[in-house]
Design a protein around this nucleic acid. Structure first.
Lengths: 218, 218
DNA sequence: GTAATGTATTTTGGATCCAATTTTCAAGCT
DNA sequence: AGCTTGAAAATTGGATCCAAAATACATTAC
């Protein structure tokens, strides 16, 4: 476990701070799948007692990021190929609909902001930033849909597959495919074509799924 | 707060026992929306310390059943009309697809079991059993879809709206509509018509949504 | 040498205690 | 009366301590 941390803020609870940090570390793949998260170790790392650590682990488990067994502790959750497929199928069902409902509400400013993330993503060479920029891009567009619950659930689904997605982007030319698709989605949004944007969102997710499963893109 | 409880099992953790009991109480409407859940009170009720109570509350919050504010404690979550609509729209997106994928895998035994729940639901006069029977019915059919993640998420969505659904069933003739629709879904499943089952599932959820929002059914 | 067994260490789950914050409510002031 | 104010009570967040279970490891029997 090679996790660093300096100082906890006073304005937010220790449990939340720990939860956020561990969530980020898991999503970014900093913690390996199957790696045990010892309460003592975390407590020392965050300069707290084990109590807020346990609350954080409990929350992480509800989000499917760790798996806990009684008296055995928590380990970072992995996904089987089937499970990953299931989550992508799920996203392919939800996100196009969110996009369809969002397009009519997109202001000029919002589109500019999204295009900014899109271009930043295409120009970034740092894999660790890809995840954030990718999510900023999609979340910005989805956000105006007004479908709060859909967004909450999509966020959760993204949390579970982000690691695998980044790994895939790094290994193959998936990053090129992602960029082409992102600009395609942007274009449809800017044209105000909700159905096209939805279709391209669907294809984008299916593409990611297949590239992940076959280990090859395009 | 009129909550009763006798003895916790030793085989499962106290936190889990408390979580399950509170979840059930909230879903069944035994605890009113906005009602504060005091840690001390819960601890005494379950004969434990506040530690497992806090873990249970933390988990409930991740599931959207309670809302916590720092140093203020947890209260039972309610839903605005918009939020409820959003959750039904979400279900109307997921569940028909789950049903479509489940129909081809339904065995004769499974169909019989589902029909059993369906008939029990139609004959039960006890509102408190409606929720369980309704979910047994749907979960039995959905279960064979193999879409584990979809099911997990649907379960969560059901948790959030079950209370309102039951209230609606009690107040109007929604129970009749629900029965008609259930048997319609059963029929489609027994015929092996996946598309029809999916469409009827969609209509079932839309019907529930509208009956809930307008306060009147058909 | 290997497998079984019993003990020590580690680790988690829970209880009790303390600190920080909010809420309550009574006293005082205008 | 109505509004501040400030101390006491109530409540949550976190630390420390103890019990229960699992794991590691040494010892013994074969």
């Amino acid at each position: 476990m090679a996790l660093k941390f300096e100082g906890i803020s006073k304005s937010t609870s220790a449990a939340t701070t720990i939860y956020d940090a561990l969530r980020k570390a898991i999503i970014e793949g900093e913690l390996e799948v199957g790696e045990p998260l010892r309460q003592d170790e975390m407590a020392k790392l965050f300069n707290t007692s084990r109590i807020p650590v346990r609350e954080a682990l409990s929350r992480l488990e509800e989000h499917g990021l760790v798996k806990t067994r009684r008296y055995k502790g928590a380990v970072v959750c992995g996904l089987s190929a089937d499970e990953a497929t299931g989550i992508f199928d799920f996203r392919a069902l939800i996100e196009p609909e969110v996009m369809r409902r969002a397009v009519p509400k997109m202001s000029r400013e919002l589109l500019q902001q999204a295009r900014g993330y899109c271009e930043a993503f295409s120009q970034s060479t740092e894999p660790l930033h890809w995840g954030d920029l990718n999510r900023d891009f999609h979340s910005t567009l989805y956000g105006v849909s007004g479908l709060a619950y859909h967004l909450e659930v999509v966020d959760n689904a993204m949390d579970r597959v982000d690691r695998y997605l980044r790994a895939q982007l790094v290994l193959s030319n998936g990053i090129d495919r992602a960029n082409i698709e992102h600009f395609g989605i942007m274009e449809a949004c800017e044209k105000g074509d909700a159905d096209l944007a939805a279709k391209r969102t669907f294809d984008h997710i299916e593409g990611a799924k297949n590239s992940l499963l076959h280990g090859i893109s395009t």
